[in-house]
Nucleic acid binder design. Structure first.
Lengths: 200, 200
DNA sequence: GCAAAAGTGTTAATCGTACACCCATGA
DNA sequence: TCATGGGTGTACGATTAACACTTTTGC
């Protein structure tokens, strides 16, 4: 579930997408620019993760990396530039290709941070499409938090938040009773904001 | 509850203690060194907070600041060098002196992070001395999380964690019934570690 | 009919919360 | 004696967790 980019330095070496800062650009701005260069989806949640502990030394000077992570819907994620299109792949977190130690650590750290943010921000909703079933939301949280939930109970709790707006539309072409589709009610969330607690 | 250092640049200007990195020192190492330069207490919890978003530009080049926060017991905190002794003061978070915008933001951000770590790490215990009463722990969490708790209920919950080891000693010289003193059971905590949840 | 997930209902156990109440100490 | 916090008990309501059951779809 992670986006990786083929590095320019070595063939076949995968890396987290990144770039240097342009001019007097801030770090947050730089990270946003990198994400925009990859995809047209602008609804993503983004957060600074951590600075690599070590400086990388080159003959020209030293380099430090500031990690950011973002939650993007795989379906909404549309690769922007044809330049990148050939060099981007999604990888499942438990089957990452060989990475530099620095990038490996950035990813592990970002995932821990994502897990801890899930209950404080409606991250689950950023990861899904505009229309989703409650079961999809459940499966998502189960994967992020590595837990199992009881379906009926999860459903009630999710609905009890009042943040799921029914769309009066159902799934199509599924070999079981089709589920109602919902969307995340951004307006109601804005009202809660500070008091939000998605404690599953 | 915050340690601030008088800056060398301007008289009467307060700042978060900091320093540049020495040689090829890592960020965590640098932060630990700065803390050690201030105090002899080595039990402190320390965590990277955030990189300032803006680079500061000087004629010589650009400067970026990586924020760290640490929880230290005020009683155990012994100022190390006589050089610092004159220039260090504790300030309550709600009555900070005038600070640069960058330092102000670092502090606010670190406090939010501290609040969110309290339930995942036994931070409360780092902030107290080796011997403490349950009521002291309660008051500490109440200040950090800006909540009020019922004393009897807090007591039961704290004891239920199994992480408080009774010392069979009581407070001295208090004008009320003396409370039993406890210490944090580090060994038992090590066993939990990953599953630790101090949800008050 | 079968499998799979949708959705509703129900119950017991657990937990949070709000108190009442007695205890021990210094002033 | 009073004020202050220490410490135990308890009772009610809310929340959680477990699972039984009916529904709707595709194969």
């Amino acid at each position: 579930m992670l986006l990786l980019d083929e590095s320019e330095l070595k063939k076949g070496q995968w890396a987290v997408p990144g770039d240097g800062l342009a001019g007097d650009e801030g770090f947050d701005d730089g990270a946003a620019r990198i994400l925009r260069a990859l995809s047209r989806d602008t609804t993503a949640y983004m957060e600074q993760s951590r600075v690599t502990n070590e400086l990388e030394h080159f003959n020209k000077g030293s380099l430090m990396t500031v990690g950011y992570f973002s939650t993007v819907s795989k379906k909404r994620f549309v690769i922007n530039s044809s330049l990148y299109r050939q060099r981007i792949l999604w990888w499942p977190l438990n089957q990452l290709p060989t990475l530099s130690l620095i990038h490996e650590r950035l990813i592990r750290r970002a995932f821990v941070q994502l897990q801890s943010q899930v209950s404080k921000q409606p991250l689950g909703f950023y990861l899904l499409d505009n229309q989703f079933t409650i079961f999809q939301l459940q499966k998502l949280l189960e994967r992020v938090l590595d837990k199992k939930y009881d379906r009926p109970n999860f459903r009630r709790k999710a609905l009890a938040t009042g943040l799921l707006e029914p769309l009066n539309v159902v799934e199509q072409d599924v070999s079981h009773r089709p589920a109602k589709l919902f969307r995340f009610n951004t307006e109601k969330y804005k009202l809660l904001e500070r008091n939000f607690k998605f404690s599953f």
